[in-house]
Amino acid sequence: MTLADDSPRTVTAPAVPVPPDPTPPPVPRRRGPSLSRNRWGYAYVAPFFVVFGAFSLFPFLFTAWVSLHDARLSDIGGGTFVGLDNYAALLTNDFFWNALRNTITIGVLSTVPQLCLALGLAHLLHYKLRGRTFFRTLMLVPYATSIAAATLVFATLFGRDYGIINTALEAVGLDRIDWESGTLSSQVAIAVIVTWRWTGYNALIYLAAMQSIPGELYEAAEMDGASKWRQFLHVTIPSLRPTILFTVVVSTIGAVQLFGEPLLFGGNGATTGGARNQYQTLGLLMYQQGWTNFNIGQAATTAWAMFLIILAVVGSAALVGRYRARREGARR
């Protein structure tokens, strides 16, 4: 991992197509003579690492240790050492695979529409608008609403017998849906909650990136006679690609850790994620193992499995990105 050495025009800088530039622009890095080799660096990161080490790193490593034990919640430090048995058991555990499947489908169902809608919304917000601050602020209201409050309301809206979504479906001549008890329907409902909460936030990130797209690109496209739609497809989207990749990664991390929405969606505090575990995510499974079944060793194992999954997803995204980068580089 080479984070520290990379120049960081992350997120928003337009990737393609940049006007041909024979010499790469100077990258301002590792040049400052007096600020480099600066021992103050340690002092500046020290406050962070003191708190971080005490309150984040220790629990993290402790969890790894617990995952190697057959430990109960009430006696967390006193379980018997079982090596990798918990991990082996996890691989043959139907509940784990079910939760993994659910996490993936809910993740796809929420991330894809969320980011597409955010793009569209950002496009709209990019116009010259009356009350632009008002609209932008409005888009952030869902993010300011707590997961608990949002889920509580949506669970009511998605109610089988008295929810207004079903009332509306019936009014237009469709059948009522038992949202909570169906597999796909419950996952869609949860994805709707996630989408609702994060679309506006992502839209503003995209909007910021759009504003940094150089006007010349659009002018050039217009001269070529490209329609607004084609400009969106061939100028806006490619320019946003790094931002899009970034939001995909961040949403993926969020999706794998999804926990509050499926916990609260059932409305009766059950950690099973529905009667058939139809919307139990990995985060919820871990919670059930640890706090409902008191099997903290199993829960720690699931937590570490989640970590490894995220690592794999982000790692492969990184590889794709690198491959692309190389290809683009070769093209130039």
Partner: peptide
């Protein structure tokens, strides 16, 4: 990880007029 976050081509922030082509909302 960085490859994801870092665009392939370095960008310059000077000499551009960002956001100038945004049309009026209909």
């Amino acid at each position: 990880m960085t490859a994801v976050l870092t665009p392939p081509t370095p960008a310059r922030t000077s000499g551009r007029r960002p956001g100038t082509k945004a049309g009026r909302a209909g």
